[in-house]
Nucleic acid binder design. Structure first.
Length: 286
DNA sequence: AGTGCGGCCTGTCCGC
DNA sequence: TGCGGACAGGCCGCAC
């Protein structure tokens, strides 16, 4: 029925920490913590995907955070030769506070800095991670085998073409394979494939170089749009309760099964690919 | 090498 | 109205 907002649609409004969300978090926190000395580390709940190292306070306190970077969906806090690796999993988030607020359920870790700022990690589902890497973090098992960044030059039609020639699996799965390209999660894979006019189920190796080039562009546009929308809320990042309003209800296909395509009006279809919710327009995508 | 799937988690929503 | 179960999904680890 027209106008019906189903459960999947409501879930779609819950924002997963995909690459744009991580990038926005990076931009929000970097100005507050870069070149600051860590004055305290409080571990409230070490249970994440892997246990948070209990010696993290010893390793961090007294050190200076030189910079914060993003690689894939990881945040990398650089302290001299060492790196604090942070991942948000499904529901993790980091917020900046001018001073430590009262603890809430699912608050895991505080990093406190010389300027008084408190960086708090919060993660209800505990799929996230906070790990320490001594020396070159690029050799860390989590980072060593990652493909190119989707917004970097190395991710182009040629790369995608070569990487998919032997792959008979659905293009959506290839797009979400971090060995091939990083940072394209389920939501943006659906959206980018719509923008490129490619069916998510199509065998990757059956897609021409030309169309893969369009997919590269679509991935870039989808991610940069989302980053731009997140960026507009950065002003309110500190001490703000709400999270940035990425995309809101603006998805083309994600979570919209049964609703009209924003381009042609036909009904968006939903199915599962590799166990993941997938959405497409049977008219606009081929 | 590529493929497919189970497992980890909790909040939310649905159906009975 | 209460309760059980399905679902959401990033990413590892494993089997084939």
């Amino acid at each position: 029925m027209l106008g019906y907002i189903g459960p999947s649609n409501k879930r779609a409004q819950h924002r997963m920490p995909e690459l744009p969300e991580v990038e926005t978090t990076l931009r929000g926190i970097a100005p507050h913590v870069e070149r600051q000395k860590v004055t305290a580390v409080r571990l409230y709940d070490r249970r994440l995907r892997w246990p948070v190292p209990s010696d993290l306070p010893d390793r961090l306190v007294g050190r200076i955070v030189d910079s914060v970077e993003r690689r894939s969906k990881y945040l990398l806090f650089r302290l001299g030769q060492d790196t604090l690796i942070v991942h948000f999993g499904m529901t993790g988030s980091m917020r900046v506070y001018r001073r430590a607020p009262a603890l809430r359920r699912h608050d895991h870790i505080d990093l406190e800095f010389g300027n008084g700022v408190v960086l708090r990690y919060h993660d209800p589902r505990r799929f996230g991670a906070m790990l320490w890497a001594s020396g070159d973090a690029g050799n860390h098992p989590l980072l060593a085998a990652l493909g190119p960044e989707p917004l970097a030059q190395a991710f182009d039609a040629d790369h995608l073409f070569k990487a998919t020639r032997t792959r008979s699996a659905a293009i959506k799965l290839a797009l979400m394979d971090s060995h091939l390209v990083v940072g394209v999660g389920n939501i943006y894979a659906n959206e980018a494939l719509f923008r490129a006019g490619i069916l998510p189920t199509r065998a990757a190796k059956r897609i021409s170089r030309l169309r893969l080039g369009r997919l590269v562009d679509a991935v870039r546009h989808t991610l940069t749009d989302a980053i731009a929308k997140g960026g507009s809320t950065l002003r309110d990042y500190v001490d703000s309760e709400g999270r940035p309003g990425f995309f809101q209800n603006g998805y083309f296909v994600y979570g919209r099964a049964g609703e009209p395509c924003r381009a042609c009006g036909r009904r968006i279809r939903g199915l599962r690919i590799g166990g993941r919710a997938s959405y497409f327009c049977p008219h606009c995508q081929r």
